[in-house]
């Protein structure tokens, strides 16, 4: 084997992509698009179009709110977990969701938005979060199904975001995805245990799957034909796959898992499509989706109430922390 001939890669001077060179807005825009096409990441201090900043602020803050509100349905079952092992797992998972919310609020703040503003938007009911958290957790089996399907869908949604064009969001997603895989497995373990348990347990987990399946499919957002922002978001690499393609990917992998645990999906139209290699599912009730998004889901009001209560009841802690810091200055 011969050593490749040494080559002198003459380094080109680093082009000025900052956008602050004496050029017009249009040229900054062109350079920004070129950077994205070249697979470069955008960092907080870099020039970016206002629309990019706005879209990302919206996406990241909605994602942060979802993590935080996502603690309520599961927190509901911590005191009633059937064993200590289950309680430890669930506590750790809920604590992770809180941590994920924090990573994301901090990522949103790098875009220039203030943390208190984001909190106000959530508490006033103005902010949106994932519609799945407006459904109730009625049985212990729901905790298993949430970990399995809700976290499973979140992983399918989020894994591509770890490669999105905005550096702080991508880095937060890397951390989050690593931790979500534990959530998925703890949920699947609960589902498997119940599915192999007594007839009552099996019935409970099947009933839970029946309730969650359709809302989980809705987690991927409106059908591509209805998704107005998609084109520019995909060009800017803040969205890497269409809603429908992610939904299909999730459905395909879930069908196989459902068979392994011996349960069934509540969809009479579910068929394997030989031509596409996909599992075709029946029509999604988009009226239900929009009702829940617009505040008329089963638990929207309860989630808002819980968020406000948490904020109010935590106020003295924040005040005490300020008072302590003022009294004991750290050098």
């Amino acid at each position: 084997m011969t050593t490749p001939a040494p080559t002198i890669a003459a380094k080109q001077p680093t082009p000025d992509f900052s956008g602050n060179s004496p050029e017009g807005e249009a040229q900054r825009q062109v350079r920004f698009e070129e950077r994205i096409q070249a697979g470069e990441r955008i960092e907080p201090k870099d020039w970016m179009p206002e629309r990019y900043r706005k879209q990302l602020t919206r996406m990241i803050s909605q994602h942060a709110h979802s993590e935080v509100v996502g603690m309520y349905p599961e927190g509901n079952w911590i005191t009633r977990a059937p064993t200590l092992r289950r309680k430890l797992g669930l506590l750790a998972k809920v604590q992770d969701e809180c941590g994920h919310g924090l990573y994301l609020y901090c990522a949103a703040e790098t875009l220039g938005v203030d943390r208190n503003e984001l909190t106000d938007e959530l508490l006033s009911g103005k902010a949106k979060y994932s519609s799945i958290f407006n459904y109730p957790t009625l049985s212990w089996a729901d905790i298993g199904v949430i970990g399995w399907l809700v976290d499973g869908a979140a992983i399918v949604n989020q894994t591509p975001l770890a490669k999105c064009s905005y550096g702080p969001y991508a880095r937060a997603m890397v951390r989050i995805c690593k931790e979500e895989s534990f959530h998925l497995k703890q949920g699947f373990e609960i589902v498997t245990t119940l599915a192999q348990g007594t007839p009552e347990q099996k019935k409970m987990v099947q009933e839970s799957l029946n309730r969650w399946w359709w809302p989980v499919l809705m987690m991927f957002g409106p059908a591509d034909a209805e998704s107005s922002n998609s084109e520019v978001l995909m060009r800017w690499r803040v969205k890497l796959h269409s809603n429908d393609s992610l939904r299909q990917r999730f459905a395909n992998s879930t069908v196989a898992q459902v068979k392994v645990v011996g349960l069934t999906l509540p969809d009479p139209d579910l068929r394997y499509n030989k031509a596409t290699g996909n599992w075709d599912f029946g029509p999604i009730d988009w009226d239900e989706f929009w009702r829940v998004v617009k505040g008329q889901g089963p638990c929207n009001r309860e989630r808002l109430r819980a968020s406000r209560k948490k904020h109010e009841q935590g106020r003295w802690v924040r005040e005490a922390a300020h008072a302590y810091a003022a009294k004991h200055p750290v050098n």
């Binding site: 050593t3 001939a5 040494p6 002198i8 380094k11 080109q12 900052s18 060179s21 960092e43 201090k45």
Partner: peptide, 28 residues
């Protein structure tokens, strides 16, 4: 360092190819 100053700030690294091992020739 700031993005707007980066090109000039890091400029001096750009033309110093002799800081890289590929610059040097050794018998094959």
């Amino acid at each position: 360092s700031t993005p707007e100053d980066s090109p000039m700030f890091f400029d001096s690294a750009a033309d110093k190819v002799y800081r890289h091992p590929q610059f040097y020739t050794i018998p094959r």
